[in-house]
Lab assay of single mutants.
Amino acid sequence: GATAVSEWTERKTADGKTYYYNNRTLESTWEKPQELK
């Protein structure tokens, strides 16, 4: 079946920190989402 992984995108802030952005829920998080573990 379909997985939720594609909803999350790994992004970088202007100062180079990595965060994760969810295209479906429009939420962002510093922690790696469960779906990516």
Rank of each mutant, 00 (worst) to 15 (best):
Y21H: 08
S6P: 12
K37V: 15
K12R: 11
T3W: 10
Y21A: 02
T9A: 08
E31V: 11
T25Y: 02
W8D: 01
W8H: 01
A4L: 13
E35Y: 05
T29G: 02
T9Q: 13
D15A: 07
A4Y: 07
T18F: 06
E7H: 08
R24A: 11
T18V: 14
A2G: 14
R24K: 13
Y19S: 02
A2I: 14
W8S: 00
P33A: 02
Y20T: 00
R24W: 11
T3I: 13
K32P: 08
Y19T: 02
K32Q: 08
W8E: 00
N23M: 11
T9P: 00
Y21Q: 06
D15N: 10
E35D: 10
A4K: 05
E7F: 07
S6I: 09
K17R: 15
E31A: 08
L36W: 10
T18Y: 06
A4T: 14
P33T: 02
T13N: 09
T3D: 13
P33M: 02
T25H: 01
S6Q: 11
Y19G: 01
T3S: 12
A2L: 14
S28G: 05
E7V: 05
S28N: 05
R24H: 12
S28L: 14
G1I: 14
L36R: 03
R11G: 06
E7P: 06
K17F: 08
V5Y: 11
D15L: 05
A2D: 14
K17W: 06
V5S: 13
T25F: 02
T18E: 03
Y19A: 01
S6E: 11
K32I: 11
T25A: 01
W30H: 06
V5A: 15
K12D: 03
A14P: 14
L26K: 15
G1V: 12
G1S: 14
T3A: 15
K32L: 10
Q34H: 11
R11F: 12
K12T: 14
D15C: 11
E7D: 15
W30D: 07
K17N: 07
R24P: 01
W30M: 08
T25N: 03
R11V: 12
Y21N: 01
W8N: 00
W30Y: 10
D15G: 08
Q34D: 15
K12L: 12
T29D: 03
T25L: 03
A4Q: 14
S28W: 15
T18I: 14
N23I: 15
W8G: 01
Y20I: 00
K32G: 03
S6M: 10
N23P: 09
G1M: 13
T29V: 13
T3G: 13
A2M: 14
N22W: 00
L26P: 01
D15Y: 07
T13L: 04
K32R: 11
S6L: 11
E35H: 08
G16N: 05
K17E: 09
L36D: 08
L26F: 15
S6T: 10
N23V: 14
E10Q: 06
T29H: 05
L36G: 06
V5T: 13
G1A: 12
T25I: 01
R11C: 12
L26N: 15
E31Q: 09
N23H: 11
R11K: 15
W30L: 07
Y21T: 05
N22D: 01
R11E: 07
L36V: 07
R11P: 00
W8R: 00
T29Y: 05
Q34R: 08
W30T: 08
A14W: 10
Y19K: 02
Q34M: 12
W8F: 02
K17V: 09
E35F: 06
Q34I: 12
A4I: 13
A14Y: 08
T9H: 09
Y20K: 01
T13F: 03
Y21K: 03
Y21C: 05
Y19P: 01
W30F: 15
E27I: 08
S28F: 14
